[in-house]
Simulated assay, not measured.
Amino acid sequence: MDLTTVIAAERRELADLLDGLPDEQWDAPTLCAGWRVREVAAHMSMGFRYSFPKVAAELVRAGGSLHRMTDRLARRDAAASPRQLAGFLRDNAHHPWTPPVGGLASALGHDVVHGLDITVALGHDRRVPEDRLRVLLDHVTARSARFFGADLAGIQLRATDLDWSFGTGTPLTGTGADLLLVAFGRKLPAGRLHGEPQDRFVAC
């Protein structure tokens, strides 16, 4: 699989989805705590719009905290119009940006997971293509889950719509996309997960 082509397709599809959102949904909450749709959309294109020296300078301003830096930039850049925010993704579909670790698979994960942060919260029925999900699910490890704040100790994630599982212990079932969100530390709306551990992963 050519991940650069897959990433470009994901960005274009998300840009089209964003272009189709009614105005009021741009201010709706997402699975990213404290961020509306517009903050998530702004964050998704941060790597395209800020050079490494600018990122370094912003990181210094944030006292070395990556979280504070990304939050401030997302809130500031969310002032762009919905058309601009969608355009940042579409116009940079083939941008070579990748996160500091993980290469192209992590870049795909960044786009897919933040796209799900928006669509799941909005109740949108977009389905991430299975080939993209499998790339990301195959990269889930105990270490990556801990990095994203997901406590999966004693739990087996078991997908209901494809042949995939991770871990050992009490089963937690859901779609592959929903379990990917769990592995990325997200809390989901009630009713999407099943199994004894589900309450640990449901948004209040």
Rank of each mutant, 00 (worst) to 15 (best):
residue 14 L to Q: 12
residue 17 L to Y: 09
residue 17 L to V: 11
residue 18 L to Y: 07
residue 19 D to P: 05
residue 19 D to C: 11
residue 26 W to P: 11
residue 32 C to A: 14
residue 35 W to K: 10
residue 35 W to H: 09
residue 36 R to T: 15
residue 39 E to C: 05
residue 47 G to V: 11
residue 48 F to I: 02
residue 49 R to L: 13
residue 52 F to E: 04
residue 52 F to S: 09
residue 55 V to Y: 02
residue 56 A to P: 12
residue 56 A to D: 02
residue 56 A to Y: 09
residue 58 E to A: 10
residue 58 E to K: 14
residue 59 L to N: 06
residue 59 L to P: 02
residue 59 L to K: 14
residue 60 V to A: 04
residue 64 G to Y: 01
residue 66 L to V: 13
residue 67 H to A: 14
residue 68 R to D: 03
residue 69 M to A: 02
residue 70 T to K: 12
residue 73 L to Q: 10
residue 74 A to K: 01
residue 75 R to M: 07
residue 76 R to N: 06
residue 80 A to G: 09
residue 80 A to D: 10
residue 84 Q to W: 00
residue 84 Q to A: 13
residue 85 L to E: 00
residue 85 L to T: 05
residue 85 L to W: 02
residue 86 A to I: 05
residue 86 A to D: 04
residue 87 G to P: 10
residue 88 F to H: 15
residue 88 F to N: 13
residue 92 N to V: 02
residue 93 A to H: 09
residue 94 H to T: 15
residue 95 H to L: 06
residue 98 T to D: 00
residue 99 P to C: 06
residue 99 P to T: 10
residue 101 V to M: 12
residue 104 L to W: 05
residue 107 A to C: 12
residue 108 L to W: 03
residue 108 L to R: 12
residue 111 D to P: 04
residue 113 V to T: 10
residue 113 V to C: 08
residue 115 G to H: 04
residue 123 G to V: 11
residue 123 G to Q: 12
